[in-house]
Structures are given as C-alpha cells and as structure tokens.
C-alpha cells in the first residue's frame, strides 16, 4: 500500500467512523421519538420482562419447589445394583466377578447413604410443610390492600425545593452521578439536567415515570433497594430519596439508609424528600392511615436515622407545609 493509499484508507475509515456515529445518533433519536409518541411505552418492555421472569426456574408460573423436591426424591436413592451386562460374554463375566468381589463393601456403604439421604429428604419435606403453613398464616395476617391504600402517597412534590436542591446537589456534582429514587414525573431530574448535572432516576413503574422517560430523561425501571444494592460503593454524588420513603416498612428504611451511606461518595449529599405525616393523614383519611403497612415519618425521625449511620444533617428545607426536604452530608475523611 502506498502512502496515498494509506491516507485514502485512513480518510475512508474516518468517514466511515463519522457516518456510523451519525447513524447511532439517528437510532437513539428514533427510539426517543417512538417512546415520546407512545408507540412503545416503557411499560410494554416491562411487561416483556415480567413475562419472561415467569418462565425462569424460580419464576411464579409453576410451583418449582415441588418439582425440585420430586427431583431430589428421585436422586436420593443410590442403587447398589451395578450394571454388569455386556454384549461380550467375557467382559460381562469379568464385570460380574468384580461386582461380586466388591458387593459386600458397596452394599454396606450404599445402605448407609440411602439411610442418610432418605432422612434428609424427610426433613426437607417437613420443612416444606412448615414453610407452607407459615405462608398461609402470613397471607391471612396481611390482607390484600384496599383500593384506597394502593394510592396512599404519590410522594412529595419537589417543586417547592427545586432551586435550592439543584444548587446544593450541583455543588457536589463533581463526585459522581446524582440519583433520584423514586423519580416520579422527573421534575427534579429535568431541573438537574437543565443545570448541566449528570442525573438519572429510577422508579418501580408509575405511569408518571413512563411519561418522564418519554421526554428523554434517563429513567430506569427498578426498585430502590434492589438498585442501590447494585450501585458501586461511594459512586454517587447525590442521592435523592422520594416516594418510597413514605411507605416503606421499618426494616426497609433501615436498609435504605445503610445503602445510602454506602453508595454516596464522601462529601456527597443524601436528600430525603418526604411527606409530613399530619398532612398525609389528612389526605388519606383515618381508615387508610391506620391500615397502611408503612406511613411517612417526621423529618426529625429521618434526621435521627441518618445521623445514627454517621451522616450530618445540614439543612431541613421548608417550602410547603405538606412536605419537607432533609439534606444530609456524608463527611469526607479527615486529611492529615
């Protein structure tokens, strides 16, 4: 290849690279456009995910535990009768002689193995019965939520705190990405993006989040605890907790703050955007409030939970009597 050929090839490669990059942008645009047009809402893709999950071995379409038990039962028996047949007479005779010579020993060992495995399987069946009883009792203790309980709280509206949250989160944005969980309609995400900060949201699948994704915001379908469990340690500049904080159980809230402390970078911020309990009770009424499995906490309680794991509460923002935004900072390690 001559120098000119090389140069021509190089130009060709550069053109091809630029062209393929352009095509990729066009594909991204088309995907966004189709989502925005409602051709293909994220909820459809979610349905595909959920459908496939039903066919996994631990899915919900079949009772795989019963199948697994049956399989274990079949495998729990060790056969002492070694196959000694052969088409060749001499080979069969040799195998028979070997089997006879070893049979007393094999029988002794295998009989004990069979006793052990049948006892083990008996224990597993007993456990299965006990777990089944527990599941039945639990299902009676936890009645299906009333329709009004399922719409208890859409989460606090971030609008009254937008300006201050964007400013505070922006000040630490050089430490990593900003995550809002749950992001709902994406109001805060849009404001952070508009200010040039790298932010994304997760949401377990509200229609508001579908609409937010359709506008081009980075919204992933995920549950908060599951997602935070997969985020790298100290990789987030900021973590905004909203929506879910109002309805979690005590154990879930403990896990949430532990994960928040783990995933936020030193110097980063954890923001709890919550609903004031009094305002919430007034909205949902006494029946739903009393029957709700999880209820909003006071800002003081959140401050206590966050302080206990080592975060420092730096501000409680006021902007709406029905909600609050609590800002806590993860201390950077002291330098010597």
């Amino acid at each position: 290849m001559t120098t000119d050929d090389t140069a021509a090839a190089g130009t060709g490669e550069a053109d091809s690279r630029a062209y393929l990059a352009q095509v990729q942008r066009e594909i991204d645009d088309e995907v966004r456009r189709r989502r925005a047009a409602g051709d293909f809402p994220p909820s459809f893709e979610r349905k595909l995910d959920e459908l496939f999950a039903r066919f996994t071995p631990t899915g919900t379409s079949d009772d795989h535990f019963t199948d697994a038990l049956k399989l274990a039962d079949r495998s729990a028996y060790f056969d002492t009768k070694v196959p000694i047949g052969s088409r060749k007479t001499a080979k069969g005779a040799v195998r028979f002689a070997l089997w006879q010579a070893e049979a007393w020993f094999m029988n002794y060992v295998v009989t004990q193995l069979n006793h052990f495995s049948s006892s083990t399987m008996r224990v597993v069946h007993l456990l299965d019965e006990r777990v089944g009883d527990l599941e039945r009792e639990l299902s009676e203790l936890t009645p299906a939520p009333l329709p009004e309980e399922e719409v208890l709280s859409p989460g606090a509206d971030p609008a009254p705190y937008l300006e201050e949250l964007v400013e505070r989160l922006g000040a630490v944005a050089d430490r990593g990405r900003i995550l809002q969980a749950e992001c709902g309609a994406g109001t805060l995400l849009a404001a952070l993006g508009g200010a040039g900060h790298d932010a994304y949201g997760i949401d377990p699948g509200s229609s508001a989040a579908d609409a937010a994704a359709a506008t081009g915001l980075e919204v992933r379908r995920d549950d908060v605890l599951g997602h935070l469990g997969s985020v790298g340690p100290e990789s987030l500049a900021g973590l905004v907790l909203a929506g879910c904080v109002d309805r979690m159980s005590t154990a879930e809230r403990r896990r949430l703050v532990a994960l928040a402390e783990l995933t936020v970078a030193p110097g980063g911020l954890v923001v709890v955007l919550g609903t004031e309990p009094a305002a919430w009770e007034e909205t949902v009424g006494p029946v739903a409030a009393d029957l709700a499995p999880g209820r909003p906490l006071h800002p003081d309680t959140w401050a206590h939970l966050l302080t206990r794991i080592g975060l420092e509460v730096v501000a409680t923002l006021a902007g709406d009597p029905a909600s609050f935004a609590l800002v806590a900072s993860k201390r950077a390690p002291a330098t010597t």
Binding site: L20, V23, Q24, I27, V31, R34, R35, F40, E45
Partner: peptide
C-alpha cells in the same frame, strides 16, 4: 453498531 441502550426497542 454497538448500542448503549439495552432496550428491545
């Protein structure tokens, strides 16, 4: 073509 977006769409 390598796609960063893992969605079926």
């Amino acid at each position: 073509l390598v796609l960063a977006d893992r969605s079926p769409l």
